[in-house]
Design a protein around this nucleic acid. Sequence first.
RNA 1: GGGCGCAUAGCUCAGUUGGUUAGAGCACCGCCCUUACAAGGCGGGUGUCGGGGGUUCGAGUCCCUCUGCGCCCACCA
Length: 859
Amino acid sequence: MSEQMSNIPDKPSLDGIEERWMQRWEADDTYRFDRTASRDEVFAIDTPPPTASGSLHIGHVFSYTHTDTIARFQRMRGKTVFYPIGWDDNGLATERRVQNVTGVRCDPTLPFDPDFVAPYNGDVPRDHRAVPVSRPNFVSLCHGVIHDDEEVFEQLVRRLGISIDWSLLYTTIGERAQRTSQLAFLHNLERGEAYQQDAPTLYDIDERTAVAQAEMEDREVPGAYHKLVFHRSDGEGDLTIDTTRPELLASCVAMVAHPEDARYKPLFGTTVRTPLFEVEVPVLAHHLADPEKGTGIAMICTFGDTTDVTWWRELNLPSRALIGFDGRMAADIPDWVTTPGGHEAYAQVAGLAPKQAQRKIVELLQASGEMLGEARPISHPVKFYERGSRPLEIVATRQWYIRNGGRDDDLRNALLKRGEQLNWHPAYMQNRYQNWVGGLNGDWLISRQRYFGVPIPLWYRLDDEGNPLYDEILTPDHARLPIDPSTSFPTGFTEDQRGKPGGFIGDPDVMDTWATSSLTPHIAGGWVDDPDLFARVFPMDMRPQGHDIIRTWLFGSVVRSHHEHGCLPWTDAAISGWILDPDRKKMSKSKGNVVTPINLLEDFGTDAVRYWAASGRPGVDTAFDEGQMKIGRKLGTKLLNVSKFVLGFDGPPADVVPAAPLDRAMLARLADVINEATRALEEFDYARALERTEAFFWWFCDDYVELVKGRAYGTQGDDAARSARAALRQSLDVVLRLFAPYLPFVTEEVWGWWREGSVHAASWPEPAELPATGDATWLVPVSEVLAAVRRAKTEAKLSQRATVDELIVDGPRAALAAVEGCRTDLAEAGGISQFTLSEANALVTVVRLTPSTDVIPAQ
RNA sequence: GGGCGCAUAGCUCAGUUGGUUAGAGCACCGCCCUUACAAGGCGGGUGUCGGGGGUUCGAGUCCCUCUGCGCCCACCA
């Protein structure tokens, strides 16, 4: 036995290896990016920054592992890997969390209170009324909470063995991110890609902010059709319509039917009077009106839904909006309601929330006989903000937009082309991009009426009455960024001119969180402050992410890079699937079925959890499966044990080349595996590479090691032993490196027994390292014969150590040559006394055992 | 209504340009303490490859069609 045995524990164990190697990698800067490398030596990854206010869940473990396998592969191939991470801590998610944890809410009208202390830190009682605080106080609380969250995140990501370069850590609320986001916005503004517009906007009345198309979702909610009676102005009768939103009746600006609808054709151009409010509105024609729906004629309100907006715009209708930012009916009687009856009706709904207003209106309509029958309940899809709890309203507001092709076919086509240029893994994910871009119906709304975000870096002049002149935009010098326009003032003004006639005001809004995270390559790459670094990493190589945020993060990033650089931000997008729970439902926090990752890592070990994650095919939703983790655990243990066996022999001299045909055949098979794994990983198919490596490894342990065991111990002489020992070491060396991207801890552990440095800094194996003359096909009949012997003993209920009196192998010449070539190894592994080989068409093995009669195993 | 994906053993899934009797692991059962490994080893059964049609010498694989499930988008009177 070798002197190296001293390095190898008697009982190798997986316990505690994470802690040991995490520390070593940190101390040795194993994953440090080499910023002197030129662009072609770099592999740059645009890692998704997890939302700091959430919690890391099993889905993160899944997708971060996928990325890490690619990162480790590329590093071993000789690239210096630019592998940053960031925390996405700006935005509404953080504000929510802070409200929940501290029991406050932001009221931007309040002054800063330097002595303010939040009422809670943790569990806020249910009946607690949120304490209003100033914006600076609120922002400061946000910073405190995210700091704590981010510590926890970092620990988990380290524990997962993700080969991040922690010196590159960024946050999306950090100064560099703010500078990046504001500078990119100002560039967009200068080039005309950003613009403001006062227009109907989907608006969340609870969060009091506008939201973008990409953040909306449909939810099926209960509603009801109400049949309302409108009176023809010529007194010739009534018109009835069906509506789900009778509360908007006072906002009705017109009636609309399909131009070819014979029922209503004669009425086009006439007017009707609305019930209750007695407002005269025209009857108009538009092709979007569906004769099949309801009574075939609809009331247009400003604004009940997006179709109303379309009609309003295309039919040049007046705006009679009544629902304001607070989500309530306007308090004052609108001036288009002119009759005493109308006034009386409106007075009863003024100031009400939509639901209450609806109840009241229905009451009034029923009393006046202008609603026919009862409301008919239905279930219908309604637009919600994805984080919201009440339906979105449409409110006319001034907002900032970035052009994304939603209103411009040339830009849309250019962005569709970018989608084609991007290499998608798996390829079909491109459809989601094309589908989304093709279906955009407006530009990207980026302004949010929120607080914890990157401020829109603009001021507006005030006229002599003190009213904002939104067309007179005051921009900061780029060198001043980042700025907060509420605390800094524009060049040429003084702070005391804020809010004064002839002075200025700052834009009160912040940017959508996606408007900043769409610049993660720029933030991580130092676009604003480290052009040397940026030139070495941009455009990046890989964007890993989930398919659910193709429309937001991926598309937003493509838009920004297209505007700013006229290119894609990366060449390849690797899309991970979701984790489903065993019932095949998407795992989500709200469903309460999320498994805590830290427990898994402790129960199974990091490598085992990574093994499960890496078994999930790229892009494919994968069921959470502890069984898979058990297999990963077994694999790690096996690796330890077989390594102990292989390294237990003295290492043969370095120049020994395995000579035995069996050894060379095994190495030839391994060379094939290297080729397959390399090809797969180049295509971002980590799962295939793992599968091939693993299949080889189990065959290696079960058959090859058993066959050569005796020879390695020296039963066939020194030369034969040297061949086996050299082959065992060479193959172990390769196998460890093939597994290293997946099982970073156990491979490093074993590597440390006999090699210098880290396996993760070693080079990716190449077939050229192995002797080229072996014939891998050779191994098939040998394994088959070995299996036949084992089967025969099992069926005879004998120990595997039982002696075979005679082994008779009939088969094709090539198979016989293979068996003959390693007959001594076979004889030792199978306890075979005598071989009889004869040529035949098919391979048939007969095993003669004592005391039983001949056993001819079923083939 | 449009798009995409999925459907293979009881379960989770491989099956790469079409090619012999369709694979793995888990689970289950049996045998074995064999000196790397009993938290192990060896062996075993199980399939109308969702249905139907087509192309082909040959189809799990390609084409058409139907069914079921999932996701995305559109519709929202």
